[in-house]
Design a protein around this nucleic acid. Structure first.
Lengths: 144, 144
DNA sequence: GTATCTGCAAACTCTTTGCAAAAAC
DNA sequence: GTTTTTGCAAAGAGTTTGCAGATAC
């Protein structure tokens, strides 16, 4: 799936939500930073530059809404704030490498997990709808 | 590794920390619930029953300390509070199945990930020290 | 026009911190 | 005895909520 403005409009309309300037602007923040894992505060800082009147609460509400519409995926890297990126529910899953020294988050792709997922699903009688894999360690720069 | 009282004493002593009743009691809460993923509030509730004078801040400080000593592992299931269980850094890694309906957390064992880990390590030049795998879905009871 | 959405400020939850008294070694 | 540790209360961070005015459709 691709997340253009049209997709957003569609998804909002489907559920009787309105397309407001704030929602469009927040969407654009992600379109312009597709590879980043933005926190609410990050997004707020970015959108406030051109729209100083926007409220932080609106950012939070919009991120929640987008997560509910499966446009964004909420995630947690253990630093006490939630982060968001475009949902990848229907594309290849990617995972995260988190540097314990500098906090940098890198991504990697893998599909080995799909195999594991179906095995676990069978054994555990759990119906799995999503997974999250994080590796913690030290990036090249932080070495050691 | 096994986490007896002796281990605790040892680990504390090694780093010039003292063995206080509070620390012992909190340790016991985990020994009595080895399979649970306790939050600070959970632990507080449990230890307060026999030791009403204990403070929540002490619980937080102790959990932090135990995580630093690698006795406990801090983890996050996305519900806004940290959870702790005995560290498994030197034993087989286990992972979590989290029910999106009732919130129940189940565990499963797997070592397939070790293979993946070394592959990623080579490709990415990341030195990996830990990993976390979570599957989200619906448990048998919550069905669909 | 009407129901939704926004901005603001206040509230809320989880966690951390400062400090003086208490306790471990 | 000295240094660490505790309990309390207050502060802090991130997030949510109530409400009256503004806005999308």
């Amino acid at each position: 799936m691709e997340f253009s403005l049209e997709t957003l409009k569609q998804k909002l309309c489907d559920r009787e939500y309105k397309l407001t300037p704030q929602r469009r602007i927040i969407m654009e923040a992600f379109t312009r930073n597709p590879e980043k894992h933005l926190s609410a505060e990050d997004v707020y800082g970015m959108v406030k530059q051109n729209n100083p009147e926007i409220g932080l609460a609106t950012v939070y509400r919009t991120l929640d809404l987008f997560a509910e519409l499966d446009i964004l995926q909420k995630m947690d890297f253990g630093d006490g704030r939630s982060r968001y990126e475009f949902s990848a529910s229907d594309v290849h899953h990617h995972h995260h490498l988190i540097c314990l020294a500098c906090g940098k988050v890198m991504e990697f792709e893998d599909d080995l997990l799909e195999t594991l997922e179906s095995a676990v699903e069978k054994k555990s009688r759990f119906r799995i709808v999503d997974h999250q894999l994080k590796f913690y360690g030290y990036c090249e720069k932080c070495g050691k």
